[in-house]
Design a protein around this nucleic acid. Sequence first.
DNA 1: TATGAATGTGTAAACGGTTACACATTACTC
DNA 2: GAGTAATGTGTAACCGTTTACACATTCATA
Lengths: 327, 327
Amino acid sequence: MVGEFMATIRDVAKLAGVSVATVSRVLNNQGYVHEDTRKKVEQAIRQLNYKPNAVARSLYKKTSKSIGLIIPDITNPFFPQLVRAVEETMYEAGYTVLLFNSDEVLKREQHIIDLMVTKYVDGIIIVSNTIKYEHLKDLSIPIVALDRVISQEIPSVSVDNYEGARKAVRLLIGKGCKKIAHLRGPKNVFTAEERLRGYMDEMNSQGMETFVYAGNYELNTSMVETMKLLTENREIDGIFAGNDVMAVGAIKAITKLGIHIPDQLKIIGFDGIELGTVITPELSTLKQPIVQLGKKSSELLLNYINGNEKVLRHYVYQAELIERDST
Amino acid sequence: MVGEFMATIRDVAKLAGVSVATVSRVLNNQGYVHEDTRKKVEQAIRQLNYKPNAVARSLYKKTSKSIGLIIPDITNPFFPQLVRAVEETMYEAGYTVLLFNSDEVLKREQHIIDLMVTKYVDGIIIVSNTIKYEHLKDLSIPIVALDRVISQEIPSVSVDNYEGARKAVRLLIGKGCKKIAHLRGPKNVFTAEERLRGYMDEMNSQGMETFVYAGNYELNTSMVETMKLLTENREIDGIFAGNDVMAVGAIKAITKLGIHIPDQLKIIGFDGIELGTVITPELSTLKQPIVQLGKKSSELLLNYINGNEKVLRHYVYQAELIERDST
DNA sequence: TATGAATGTGTAAACGGTTACACATTACTC
DNA sequence: GAGTAATGTGTAACCGTTTACACATTCATA
């Protein structure tokens, strides 16, 4: 691998008996280089186990072959797959990813962005509800918003949460549910608001009464809230949870209460994380194409970095209804 | 934030009417700077919204305030917490983390390491069974092995899998299990081998017959294998699964067969991932101090980077027995 | 008051690459 | 065979920092 001594381009040049410019040319495969010279240089490179210094290159080129990925919290089961997809795609394109957990704290996000600017990252993928266009508009590096659209001016890759929610509700109705509650996600979170809106619109269009319960996309509060919901309102026979994690929490509560799923009560989640297939009963859900989201956002960012993408793009995917045992 | 124009140290110097050396001195808070001069410089810095260029700094200092983190796969539920803890600790110390998923493919790991060397990362934390001391010995940057010990020569932070396994088996025996099977993890994986060894030793020391079934730390194969195990050998009344994911797979299979947990069969896992508390019945397990592992490995690495740590250290944590509903 | 230490500042050379430009040489074209 | 284009190579400036060194000035001490 690499020992204490690291050869520089000058060492290679000396050994090969050429100038550094020539070495650089063979390295980057550009400009004219005589075949014999190239051979000599390649030989010297091998002999010294020379690897061009990425930092020096960055300094001159103002590019680092790395991108920043800001997510709220990798511990949230939605993100590992997303991160994996991004890392994978970027790695194949020769880019390194700098990972940051922001907890959606604006101050922290801003600090992270400043940091990345000084490191010459070539682009940023961000998942955030707190950051707004005004915080980003002066930035000179490409940014894409992932999973949430931040503003019309920032390219994005996301899922149609509204339509997905309507599909979820429609399924429950189709299965004969008469009283359908919604365990909503946190306030001011884009995806949660959209899913709530979808629920409301679909319910209203069917002339059904709505029951909305607070939640924050987390398991434990969802358990508590479900307990409350079911004791307060015993005729509820369908629950649309704001995400799979909440649905799993709800299932725990429901099971604890001795209510049978899906006979007495049907439940559906949103996201399509693995957890849903692991629990009993397996969870029906609206599956987001997580890997595709990660991949597409990476490709989009790469296109912007390379200047291929000239117009602002917003990609929207549809969530896929996956029916399993909970409905 | 940062616009198209990025001020350099020369711009600051010019505006403040001093030399770049002086600006550098106030920036790094070292050497003598007259109070009045410092004021002027700080004023200029603010005025230009100047942020020192990390890349240029790296080039000269041969340091990047970043570290590499190589894990097999972030998608494996053990890793998100670990990654979070590392990122957190590093961020607080002013370091950025470069994340890589290696799938434990040696070629890829080596390539990643080469890449990091050219990027002047200050250190590496690696989780790997494939990489060996010989691949690392020529490296001049600090490395620490996480979750697995690679060799005596590489500092490490890990868990006592052997003793943990013995504790798990002892619990099952204490609960009255007569025939205890082990769903083992993948061959040649350090943690899996240690847990197997713990199982064997504890069983043998109690004069009990052993039943070992193959597995690879994954859910689906675990389900299949459990089905096989229970049809082949109906008297099994205790299962020690190599990790929690396998335990969850086993529980699914067991539930499907209509066998009641924990009355007819008890099961215990290893890891202490969140998943275990989410399923029904909640899983008994040997909880690894995942956050501590991440934190300690980061601190250890930082100490090596800063030259504080002079002797090679191996930290070993004990897994904690957590009894829940599956036993 | 002479002298050395402490304080304050600037110049220029690194760090390790890339590339504009200049200068040769060789290959075509008519 | 002259003129032009294509090919091949080197020199040196540049990217934006840090720091060794030199040089001044001020301060303290005997």
